[in-house]
Computed example of a mutant assay.
Amino acid sequence: MASLSIPVGISACLLGQKVRFDGGHKRSVYCLNILSECFDFKPFCPEVAAGLGTPRQPIRLVGDAADPRALGTRNPDLDATDGLAEHADFVTEHHPELCGYVLMKGSPSCGMERVKVYHPNGMPNEAGSGIFAARLMANNPALPVEEEGRLNDAVLRENFITRVFVYYNWQQEVATDPSVHSIIQFHSRHKYQLMAHSYKGYKELGRYLASDAPQQPLDEVMNHYILTLMTFLKERANRKSHTNVLMHIMGYMKKDLDQDTKQDLLTTIEEYRTRKVHLVVPLTLLKHYLKRHGNDYILSQAYLDPYPHELGLRNYI
């Protein structure tokens, strides 16, 4: 795998650090053995940072599910809420280089969603988000965030890693030397990747860059574009949307391919659409012919190689 070092935050327990309330960890084999080849993981434990020892009294979310407090399970006078939120502010301020974040599922500090919230009398309330996770996401609405447990789902895994690489590309290609031109160049290279996730987003951002962006201050354009892009990329690409992109890409070669080759490509794309093969099959065939017949524009599309192929993500979707 190509040597990469994309900075990504992660709950420290997922890297095997013994920082959980019971002195244990939740080591993630996938993060450590696979993703660490291209992600430079930056571990954080907000509960330790908030001054809670290891081992320690567990905390849980109590009160309004939309704005809960993180209180001790044995001693409700222990309130870690402010410390957890302040650590999210610290990470935001001191680690702007992060291009993604992997959180611990179900944690009252790090859980992204569906974290148990209780009424003060101990009865279950509606689920919410961990205190640290909620503040982190509010501070960084464009940042790709996912729970480690959800990475077991092939579609969610591919979606998250795609978003991390897009955000990394943005930081490298646009944020380091911002201009409307660099944003347009970036958008041009990521058009089909966006189309695979949201045709609406593909049309909307294209119109925005063509009509509104040239009239607005650069910082407003930067903020609007990346937040809108990352929001649309959260939508899960599916076989129908991928098929649409594959057909668009094939269209760039229609004048150069003989009838038999066209039929082979169409058959393979249809096999993908009808769940007979995974995405890697039609893509591999398309890329083979693009080497001979593709132009600079289509060959530059991030959709063709959005991340190192060694990750094998398209072997399962």
Rank of each mutant, 00 (worst) to 15 (best):
L4R: 13
V8T: 01
S11K: 07
A12P: 02
V19K: 08
S28R: 03
C38N: 09
F41E: 04
A49K: 11
Q57R: 13
V62R: 04
A65L: 11
D67A: 15
R69C: 05
A70Y: 03
A70G: 01
G72D: 06
T73R: 11
T73D: 10
T73M: 13
D77K: 14
T81C: 04
G83I: 00
A85H: 05
V91S: 03
H94L: 11
S109M: 09
C110R: 02
G111H: 01
E113I: 10
M123V: 14
S129C: 13
F132R: 02
F132N: 10
F132T: 04
A133V: 07
P144K: 08
E147G: 12
E148P: 02
V155S: 10
R163T: 01
P178Q: 11
K191N: 08
M195G: 06
G206M: 00
E220Y: 06
N223Q: 12
N223C: 03
I226N: 00
F232T: 00
N238G: 15
K240N: 13
H248N: 15
K262E: 11
E270F: 07
P282L: 06
L286F: 02
N295S: 08
I298M: 02
Q301D: 03
P306Y: 03
P308K: 05
P308E: 02
L311S: 05
G312L: 01
